[in-house]
Design a protein around this nucleic acid. Structure first.
Length: 233
DNA sequence: ACCCAGGTGGCCC
DNA sequence: GGGCCACATGGG
């Protein structure tokens, strides 16, 4: 047996109490984060697409440009040209792709459901499937929209979640999105408020610490490793 | 002059 | 189902 296979055989996934311990540690550090940063459901929807592989600061610039150009709504985005959208969203990167995706997604929703609210009437499972069928919306963006705009319980996984879970509980960096998602959803009750703040805490912690460098002495993640593991059941 | 950021689609096997 | 690559601007 290889050493990796041996480690996998010994590995035990975190239980409910372990996950809640981590959540409480992050909460006590940052407080309630009150996500998503966006005024309306439509802004949350747009922000979820714009924030792909980009910092929120750059998304804010793009959103401000869209707002100034009166393009920050489903209806206006579906009527605008991709050039108009693209010139607004340059700061958030991948602007040629994202302007196509934004226009396409908004047109699709408007045509088939009339509005975001119309789309959100779908049951969670069907809503997720529908979102995933839209170009430009992958698993993380779909779950962000469901959780933060539609306000239905689905656990959002991102790079920070994967990284912090690896460091605190030793989960593999090879875990797929769906594996990591079900790790949380099989242990935690489907509570929108908990899922909302849990993910927000991961991002808040992740973007400030331990990006790709080794753990530093004062890194909160390192402190959490000690606390969480010392009380492991 | 690098490296990275709250991923995703297309293509391939 | 998974591996690889292009996509693009802004900040460290």
């Amino acid at each position: 047996m290889s050493s990796i296979a041996y480690a996998n055989a010994l590995y035990k996934p975190p239980k409910t109490a372990d996950l809640m311990k981590l959540y409480k540690l992050m909460f006590s550090r940052s407080g309630f984060l009150d996500w998503w940063p966006g005024d309306t459901k439509e802004e949350i929807f747009v922000g979820a697409i714009l924030t792909q592989q980009t910092t929120w600061k750059n998304v804010e610039k793009a959103m401000a440009n869209l707002k100034a150009a009166k393009l920050l709504s489903i209806k206006q985005l579906s009527n605008a040209t991709t050039n108009e959208i693209g010139s607004c969203i340059k700061p958030s990167g991948y602007y040629r792709q994202k302007s196509n995706h934004l226009k396409g997604a908004c047109s699709y929703i408007l045509k088939n459901y009339g509005s975001l609210e119309g789309l959100f009437k779908l049951k969670t499972k069907e809503l997720r499937k529908t979102l995933l069928s839209i170009k430009g919306i992958g698993p993380e963006t779909a779950d962000s929209i469901i959780l933060y705009a539609a306000e239905k319980p689905t656990f959002v996984i991102d790079a920070y979640t994967k990284r912090i879970m690896g460091r605190v509980f030793g989960t593999s960096q090879d875990m797929s999105y769906s594996e990591l998602k079900s790790l949380f959803e099989s242990s935690l009750r489907p509570n929108t408020d908990l899922y909302n703040d849990f993910h927000a805490q991961f991002v808040e912690l992740g973007k400030n610490y331990c990006k790709t460098k080794p753990l530093c002495g004062s890194c909160p993640v390192k402190v959490m490793c000690k606390y969480v593991k010392s009380s492991n059941v």
